[in-house]
């Protein structure tokens, strides 16, 4: 299994990258960490006219805090995130999620932007940005736009990135005070994409759940934010009863499909189980944090 022939470009800046993309008019592909695209090339499931390698573009690799968000350059390695003190202190949930992305040797090269742009329906980062209502910053020759997850993830391996456009930054709000969180996933083997995963962040102030965030992935073409579930928690709190009701609601909201690894019914059922587990863990933590 060897890649088909392609032109190779290694621009040093985003502007240069965009210029090259423009020249190929949709026939070029961006190469980030390569942990998915290289496999597709080796299988010859992708055969772009050109590869534009983002690895030599230093301006795409950073983690910084700004405007209540953590901002990640698209080429920030998953491994950098895993060991980032800033992420550990401002968004520990992301560390938990990162450790479930493949394995350490794949996180060495794998990037946050690559994972999000690839949009595997069961991948961890898309679920995380969806749950926490992050933002994707897209740039093209004509300018910059900021896209919310619900508009960004369009279905199986499909995103809002237009031809000639590229993902340059991912933004995720930092953890609010008085919060608890959990990332629950069920996979058949360690390091696999999940069959179902649930991400949650609960903020509880003075005994009231002021803000609930819950998303599920693995249950359809794109991760889904479960707003009605959040509403239950924001209304009824994070006690056992509310969590039970919220989990049942979660299962109703998703519309999974069947594949080799799990049936649709099982995925729906897991949605309920994992939502309950995630919420219970997050609620327990928030009690500890308060």
């Amino acid at each position: 299994m060897k890649p088909p022939p392609f032109e190779y470009h290694d621009p040093k800046t985003v502007d240069e990258t965009l210029a090259i993309l423009g020249r190929y008019g949709g026939e070029a592909r961006l190469l980030a960490g390569g942990q998915s695209l290289m496999a597709l090339l080796n299988f010859r499931l992708a055969s772009p006219a050109a590869l534009v390698d983002l690895n030599p573009v230093p301006e795409l690799s950073y983690i910084r805090e700004e405007g209540g968000q953590l901002r990640f350059g698209a080429m920030t390695r998953q491994r950098q995130i895993e060991f980032s003190p800033l992420v550990a202190s401002r968004l520990p949930l992301m560390i938990e999620a990162t450790r479930m992305v493949g394995h350490l040797p794949t996180r060495t090269r794998g990037t946050i932007g690559g994972s999000i742009a690839h949009a595997d329906p069961a991948a961890e980062y898309p679920a995380l940005v969806t749950a926490l209502d992050g933002e994707m910053v897209l740039r093209s020759a004509s300018g910059t736009r900021v896209v919310k997850p619900a508009d960004f993830f369009k279905g199986f391996f499909t995103t809002a990135i237009a031809p000639g456009e590229m993902l340059v930054e991912v933004r995720i709000p930092v953890t609010p005070a008085h919060s608890g969180w959990a990332f629950e996933e069920f996979s058949r083997r360690h390091g696999d994409f999940a069959i179902v995963e649930i991400v949650t962040m609960l903020t509880v102030d003075n005994g009231r759940c002021t803000r609930a965030r819950v998303a599920a992935s693995g249950v359809g073409g794109a991760p889904v934010r479960l707003r009605p579930v959040e509403e239950i928690l924001e209304r009824d709190g994070v006690g056992e009863r509310a969590i039970g009701e919220a989990s049942a609601r979660a299962a109703e909201l998703v519309d999974p499909t069947s594949d080799l690894h799990a049936s649709a019914d099982y995925r729906r059922h897991l949605t309920r189980v994992l939502t309950r587990r995630a919420l219970t863990r997050a609620a327990l933590q928030v009690r500890g944090n308060n």
């Binding site: 058949r188 069959i195 690894h261 799990a262 049936s263 019914d265 099982y266 059922h269």
Partner: peptide
């Protein structure tokens, strides 16, 4: 005995 299969049997 995959989890999905087993769960269906149990259900």
């Amino acid at each position: 005995i995959t989890p999905s299969r087993l769960w269906h049997l149990m259900e």
